[in-house]
Amino acid sequence: MDNNDTAIEPTPQQGSAFKRWLIGVFIDLYKVSMFVVRFFKEVFFPPYEVKEVMKQCYEVGVRSLTIVSVTAFIIGVIFTKQSRPSLSEFGATSWLPRLVSIAIMRALAPLITAIIVAGKVGSSIGAELGSMRVTEQIDAMEVSGTKPFKYLVCTRILATTITVPILATYAGFIALIGGYVNVAQNEGTTYTAFMEQVFEPLGFIDFTSSLAKSIVFGFTIGVVGCYQGYFSTKGTEGVGKAANMAVVTAMFIVFIEEVIIVQIFGWWR
C-alpha cells in the first residue's frame, strides 16, 4: 500500500484553528507591546504619584518579607545539605561555602524571589485591577478626568521593579545564613571564616547579573499582572482568570528571561 494513501492530512478545521491561534498570539504581543510603550510614555511625565508608589512598594516588599525570609532560609539549608555528599566524595567539603554563594547569588536568590512575588503579588495585582475593571471603577476614573493608567498601572509596575531587587538581595543573604547554619553544624566553621569564603569567588559581574535579573523580573511581574487585570472582562470569572494568568504568564516569562540573561552575562565572564 502506498504510504501517501495512509498519510493523515490536517483537516481544514484544524488549519483554520491553528491560524486563528497564531493570529491571536500576534495580536496579544502587539497589545502587550503597546501597553509597555504607554507605560514609558506616562511614567516620566507629571503628575508623579509618589505616595501611591511608596504604598505599593510597602504592599509588595514589606508584606512579602515573611514568606521570602522563610523560603530563602530553607533553600540555603537544603542546598547546602544536598551539596555536601557530592563534595565529600572528593574530599572538597571546604569548597561548600563557595559553591553555595555562587549558586545562590548568581541564580537562586533572584529566581526564587521572582517566583514568590509572581505568585503572591502578581495574582493580587491581577485580581485587584480585574475587580476594578469589571465593577467599572476604572471607567468611572476615566470619565471623571483622572488618569487611571498612571495611578493604577505605572505605580504598581514601578513598585515591583524597585522592590524585587531589594527582596532578592535580602533573600540572598538570608539563604547564605541558612547555608552557614548547616555548615557550622556539620563542619564547625566560624561565621567570619564562612563569610570570607562566601564572597571570595564572587565578582562584579555576579552582582551585576543578579541585579539585572531582579530588575527585569520585577518589571515583568508588574507588567503582566497589570495587563491581565487592566483588560479583564466577563465579570467575576474574568477576575479569577486574570489572577491565574498573571501568575502563570509571569513565571513562564521569568524562566525565559533567566535563560537569556544567564547566556548574555556568560559571554562576559
Rank of each mutant, 00 (worst) to 15 (best):
F79K: 07
L129S: 06
A127P: 13
G130M: 00
S131W: 05
V117N: 05
G122T: 09
P110A: 05
M105E: 13
I116C: 09
R133F: 03
E142I: 07
A92Y: 08
A118G: 13
F149Y: 13
G126A: 02
G122V: 09
S83A: 15
E136V: 09
K150N: 15
E89Y: 10
W95L: 15
V121N: 05
I138L: 09
L87H: 04
M105F: 13
S131C: 10
V117W: 02
M105Q: 13
T113S: 02
S123C: 07
G130N: 00
G91W: 00
L111Y: 05
M141K: 06
L96R: 00
S144A: 14
F79N: 10
I116P: 06
T93K: 15
S86C: 04
T80H: 01
A109Y: 00
I115V: 15
S123M: 03
V143L: 08
K81I: 09
L108F: 14
L99M: 13
G91F: 00
A103R: 08
S83D: 02
A107W: 08
M132I: 02
E142C: 06
K120L: 04
W95D: 14
S86Q: 11
R98T: 09
E89Q: 12
A109N: 00
K147W: 08
E128Q: 13
T135V: 05
T146P: 02
S101G: 12
L111E: 09
G91R: 01
S94R: 15
M105H: 11
G130R: 00
Q82S: 15
K81D: 15
Q82E: 15
A118R: 08
G91T: 00
G126Q: 03
R84M: 15
V143I: 10
G145Y: 05
S88F: 11
V117H: 04
E89S: 11
P97D: 01
Q82C: 11
L129G: 09
L111R: 04
L129M: 07
V117E: 06
S124F: 10
M105T: 13
V100N: 13
V117F: 03
V100G: 07
P110L: 02
P97M: 02
G119C: 04
S83L: 08
I138R: 04
I102H: 01
S88C: 08
F90K: 12
G119A: 06
S94D: 15
A103D: 09
G145K: 04
L99G: 15
G130Q: 00
A114H: 05
K120H: 07
S123Y: 01
I102M: 08
A107G: 13
R98F: 01
R106M: 05
V117A: 06
K120G: 05
L108W: 08
A127R: 07
S131I: 02
M141W: 05
I115W: 03
S131A: 11
I125T: 11
E136G: 11
V121K: 03
M105P: 08
L99E: 07
I102L: 10
V121C: 06
S144M: 14
S83K: 01
Q82K: 14
V117K: 03
L99I: 14
D139R: 11
R98P: 02
E142Q: 12
A107C: 09
L96K: 01
A103Q: 09
G126W: 05
K147A: 11
L87E: 06
I104S: 08
E142M: 10
